[in-house]
Design a protein around this nucleic acid. Structure first.
Lengths: 187, 187
DNA sequence: GTCTATAGCTAGATAGAC
DNA sequence: GTCTATCTAGCTATAGAC
């Protein structure tokens, strides 16, 4: 077998970057090929299902990323809640390059007739909220309070990214990260 | 001249609906034609600049709508702030069909190389925040506080719409509307 | 596993009849 | 002002050499 020109991790990263900024319909195979350094036909070798499969694989990667960097961080035993929150927020900042990048869950939410993609998006959002709900409960909030805060944290992230993009000003995301911290700060 | 098959208002409404749900790249001229009952060539007669001009005109309509239904409502003299807020929230619910529809500002935010569209989106977002800032100031908040609340109100709307879409659950938008009200409720 | 070349189609956009 | 018919470019996807 020939050696891979680009390993799976870098490949997914490049594909994700294009889908994130252009959306599913806006991302052409030429765009995706250019971003990865591969030719279109090579992408079909890696992803026989074409662009559809690429989107599914990228979202699978995002699910795993959120599980490792948000869910497992926030549900780890023996670590102070404030510390875990700080870590999760730091990872979130890295994921969105401090507000410079928009969210792929949002970018792939537009109607494109792909049921699988919609299911993945909701799975990821639910995982995020589950993680922050667990944090809130650990902090002593009631289940209902924790669930509300978890929802608000996701609203803050998604909404602020929309503003940062629409106004070309990442400070909206940065301010929202402060608000997320406040949400889970017991005073 | 032949009579218009569809008047400008209904035309823009139909075009907006498609752009809102499919985005700029996802909305084909066939989609737009079908939604309006016109043929593609007829759309080009109404909008010689093609899809690009359609998007610009739709966003111009949205700007006017926000001005009339949010900005002018919130800055009207001689009406109690709480009343004005209630009205603006009601209009917002109508605009997004209580969380069933997503925001066209978000849908058209994906990179498509259209500078004019980006400028319009930021103009509309700024108008929204200006309106809510005025409300906050009238209620006695400091300028900085009012500005922060205005930003948060837009974050709540945009973020909750992303959740409502991603989770196929408009209740997230509805809860956010309650949060917006709380934001500007002096207790 | 990657590539060039190309098939087959649909997109956006235009011409011209009525 | 709306329509049918059509052009060209770009798209997704495939075939087959290396």
């Amino acid at each position: 077998m020939r050696p891979q020109k680009i390993d799976d991790a870098k490949l997914i990263e490049g594909l994700m970057s294009v889908l994130q900024s252009k959306g599913f319909e806006g991302a052409s195979l030429n765009d995706l090929a250019k971003a990865t350094g591969l030719q279109k036909a090579s992408l079909y070798h890696r992803f026989p299902g074409g662009k559809n499969e690429i989107a599914v694989m990228v979202l699978e990667f995002v699910y795993t990323w959120i599980k490792d960097n948000i869910y497992l961080v926030l549900t780890e035993k023996g670590v102070a809640p404030a510390t875990k929150l700080q870590r999760a927020i730091q990872h979130t900042k890295e994921l969105y390059q401090n507000g410079e990048k928009s969210c792929i869950l949002n970018a792939l939410s537009l109607d494109s007739g792909l049921v699988a993609v919609g299911d993945q998006i909701s799975k990821i959002m639910l995982l995020w909220m589950e993680a922050f709900t667990a944090l809130g409960v650990e902090q002593g909030f009631t289940a209902a309070q924790a669930k509300a805060k978890a929802r608000q944290s996701l609203v803050l992230v998604q909404g602020s990214l929309v503003l940062s993009k629409g106004l070309s000003d990442p400070s909206h995301f940065q301010k929202a990260m402060v608000d997320v911290k406040m949400l889970f700060t017991n005073e």
